[in-house]
Write a protein that binds this DNA or RNA. Structure first.
Length: 505
RNA sequence: GGCGGCAUGGCCAAGUGGUAAGGCAGAGGACUGCAAAUCCUCCAUCCCCGGUUCGAAUCCGGGUGCCGCCUCCA
């Protein structure tokens, strides 16, 4: 089976091509570490985590590189604002990013290069670009010692393929855009972009042939990708908003510097939206990953972000999160029930039986793989889980039916296998169920709160009424509990209650 | 202004030529003192108009609506 991807360069679905058979080199643009990451970032890295997992499971030896941009105007501004060094800020934010990604079960890339540790490579690439006639040097900022440092620009007009990825001509760029971009007389063309920026007072800087300064925004990815994956590598990925100018510029720089192809295929994921509008820092309509994880389990957020195809926009809303939560919880509850039952029957290991594989599971396994190989169609992959889950439900409902235990064991084993592809449903089920319930309980009925005391009071009252077979009073108590968001359940083990998991009311 | 994307049941969402996956909600049933949870069953002809084709949600043309990029952005 071949993996097919939507290649942004051709705008078509085509087979994933690897330069070296059996090996896949993957570069994903990482974050600029000046703040906590938001849900839009979460989507990118979860999507490409699934890409990476799928490729590995299809037998490819994957080298996954994801950078940190740790030098940038916004970082400098934020560090000043916070009264800390850029280094302190970026170190903190990288740690926070790792923490977020770990919670979301995104596997770590093989290499996570930082701009600040790749200055020699960056400077060398800029020198190459200049040497080959695609870059030029102009006077920049006056330095403390009175000298004038230099800026370096990429000369877009010397690179005819410019615009191929984003599908725009250089003339297009000149028009509408130019009125919003401040005119710079030093540039040959207003579309030219900075390769190296001379240092302003108080900014962090690195020494270079052009004086003290720092790299422009795009060059770091060209340099780090070439260093860690080679001048030509397989796939370069990122959010759709990076197509232009970031990726367009990366291509121009790398190819201008070394004459090689750079990334052979490109993948871009769609935005997370709110009310159909892009979630972004500039619009201010974003939620950080931490904001969301304070209310929803990481598996719920991950599941939600995989419910739409990665190339499409995905609308973020409480309602969607709650729907995802409902589904994730239901599946983990079934897994918990399966585990309990199998343990009780001494079949805890599961999936190691001699019975022939159930056709249903076999089909689902094939569909899961087909779906993911077909351009990482996660909605289809999630749908493939439904039939086995339905079979599991039925078997759990009638565990004494012929073959029921076998179904339970096999579906459980299948879900465990699916979790390797999707990064979902691999956690100890009772832990997840308890975490989700506890999160809602602590929100609605914090420990020691009057709300919690009220629930306990009503529960006692209902118990007394029930003992006296006073159904009217018992129902009143239950209605009152429902009213405040506590759902009562009578079971053979006695009465339990759960906080309402949705946020209505 | 230039370039591009999307429009499927109440909501979310797959599906690129052969008669609409899946999830949530809803309805009916089982279970329950009543409920909840759980289980079973049911529930769309694909924005509008025209065209191509034996046959289109899927291709072409024209509308309408929404969104994105062109400035920092995942």
């Amino acid at each position: 089976m071949q993996i097919r991807i939507t290649n942004s360069l051709t705008r078509q679905k085509e087979p994933l091509r690897t330069l070296v058979p059996g090996k896949l080199s993957l570069y994903v643009c990482g974050v600029t570490v000046y703040d906590f990451s938001h849900v839009g970032h979460a989507r990118v890295y979860i999507v490409f985590d699934v890409v990476q997992r799928t490729a590995r499971r299809m037998g490819l030896d994957v080298t996954y590189v994801r950078n940190f941009t740790d030098v940038d105007d916004k970082i400098i501004a934020r560090a000043n604002q916070n009264g800390e060094t850029t280094d302190a800020l970026t170190t903190r934010m990288i740690a926070a990013f790792h923490e977020d990604m770990d919670r979301l079960d995104c596997e770590r890339p093989q290499v996570e290069p930082r701009v600040t540790t790749h200055m020699p490579e960056i400077v060398a690439m800029i020198e190459q670009i200049i040497a080959r006639g695609h870059g030029y040097v102009v006077p920049g900022e006056v330095q403390a010692d009175g000298s004038i440092a230099q800026d370096v620009y990429f000369d877009v007009r010397t690179f005819p393929p410019y615009g191929a990825l984003s599908g725009r001509s250089q003339d297009d760029n000149a028009d509408g855009a130019s009125e919003r971009v401040q005119h710079d007389a030093r540039k040959h063309s207003q579309a030219d972009f900075a390769l190296w920026k001379s240092a302003k007072p108080g900014e962090p800087f690195w020494n270079s042939p052009w004086g003290n300064g720092r790299p422009g925004w795009h060059i770091e990815c060209s340099a780090m990708a070439c260093k860690h994956l080679g001048e030509t590598f397989d796939v370069h990925c990122g959010g759709k908003d990076l197509v232009f100018p970031h990726h367009e510029n990366e291509i121009a720089q790398a190819r201008a510097a070394n004459g090689q192809e750079f990334a052979r295929q490109w993948m871009h994921n769609g935005f997370v939206t709110i009310d159909s509008e892009k979630m972004s820092k500039s619009l201010g309509n974003f939620f950080t990953i931490r904001d969301v994880l304070a209310r929803f389990h990481p598996q719920v957020l991950r599941y939600f972000l995989l419910t739409a195809h990665y190339t499409h926009p995905l609308n973020f809303s409480d309602r969607s999160l709650e729907e995802a939560q409902k589904r994730v919880l239901a599946i983990y509850e079934k897994l918990a029930a399966a585990e309990a039952l199998l343990t009780a029957r001494g079949m805890a290991s599961g999936g190691q039986m001699d019975e022939p594989e159930l056709e249903l599971v076999e089909n689902a396994r094939g569909e899961l793989q087909d779906a993911l190989c077909d351009d990482f169609n996660t909605p289809r992959a999630l749908a493939a889980l439904s039939e086995p889950i339905a079979a599991l439900s039925l078997a759990l409902d009638k565990p004494k039916a012929a073959g029921a235990l076998d179904v339970i064991a096999q579906v459980r084993a299948f879900l465990h296998e699916a979790s390797g592809w999707l990064g979902l449903f691999q956690h100890p089920p009772t832990t997840v169920v308890e975490a989700i319930v506890a999160q809602a309980r602590d929100r609605l009925f914090p420990p020691g709160s009057e709300a919690l005391a009220n629930v306990e009071r009503l529960l006692v009252e209902r118990q007394e009424a029930r003992a006296a077979k006073d159904w009217k009073r018992a129902d009143e108590a239950r209605d009152a509990l429902t009213q405040v968001g506590a759902e009562v359940r009578d079971g053979p083990q006695g009465t339990t209650w759960r906080p309402r998991l949705t946020d209505e009311a």
